[in-house]
């Protein structure tokens, strides 16, 4: 009788859910789950620990930015709830920032590229904290200064803008910016690690970083690409269903 009473309390709506079919709308989610962990299992062999540390930091920043841009494209469902455009990406509040970035990283890895339009922009905000001294090591008691640089890059790489220290937006000719971080330029880079490193050394030598030799300039070149590269632009206009 106790079990019968408890059973009778079960809402019919839950039975509806449990008897439901898993339709084709789940295919993308299933694929994303399987792809996310498969990629996480790969380990990249980088030339040195220094480069690897910088590359990971840059990658985390770019993933977080990419997830922010794409997450706003989902629209709302029939109940007015915000719909996530990324399979498995939660629309509710995450328990903490680590959960958000972890999920964004997993989903961004699995998400097929190609949703931004050519006329959309990637927003990048960089905050850095350093000693106020112009050169030399920081002495105890030296004040630290945090600066923020805000840049925008059009997905097709044709325009670049930066917010100056007084909040004004200044557009820049992207031809003067190196390295190029639009998709076409990044896609043209060699996939082989040794050839990529050689290409990075050759390119960075053309526009040397102030005070750098070959190693730090190459590190900076690769870090910039990882940090600032934008998602692939759409090859066709978006369909009306999205």
């Amino acid at each position: 009788m106790i079990d019968k009473t408890v059973r009778a309390l079960k809402p019919a709506a839950l039975d509806d859910v449990e008897r439901g079919r898993v339709g084709p709308e789940h295919d993308e989610r299933i694929a994303a789950i399987m792809a996310s962990d498969r990629r996480a299992r790969r380990r990249f062999a980088l030339p040195s620990a220094g480069v690897r540390v910088a590359a990971v930091a840059g990658l985390a920043a770019s993933i977080a930015v990419g997830a922010t841009v794409l997450e706003n494209l989902g629209g709302t469902d029939e109940n007015g709830r915000r719909r996530s455009v990324l399979p498995g990406f939660p629309t509710g509040a995450a328990a903490d920032a680590a959960q958000v970035l972890d999920r964004a990283a997993r989903v961004a890895e699995a998400r097929p590229a190609g949703t931004p339009r050519e006329d959309q922009w990637t927003y990048l905000e960089e905050r850095s904290t350093s000693t106020s001294r112009n050169a030399g090591a920081r002495a105890a008691g030296d004040p630290l200064v945090t600066s923020t640089v805000v840049t925008w890059q059009r997905v097709d790489g044709s325009r670049w803008a930066v917010k100056d220290g007084e909040g004004r937006i200044a557009f820049q000719d992207p031809r003067g910016i190196t390295p190029r971080t639009d998709y076409d330029a990044v896609a043209a880079l060699p996939a082989d690690p040794a050839r990529l490193l050689a290409a990075a050394r050759a390119q960075s030598a053309k526009a040397p970083v102030a005070g750098a030799g070959g190693g730090p300039a190459t590190l900076s070149y690769l870090n910039t690409i990882l940090r600032d590269s934008v998602p692939r632009r759409r090859s066709r206009p978006p369909s009306s269903g999205r």
Partner: peptide, 8 residues
């Protein structure tokens, strides 16, 4: 597994 048990 997913198709059979996601609803539950």
């Amino acid at each position: 597994i997913y198709r059979r048990h996601y609803p539950s």
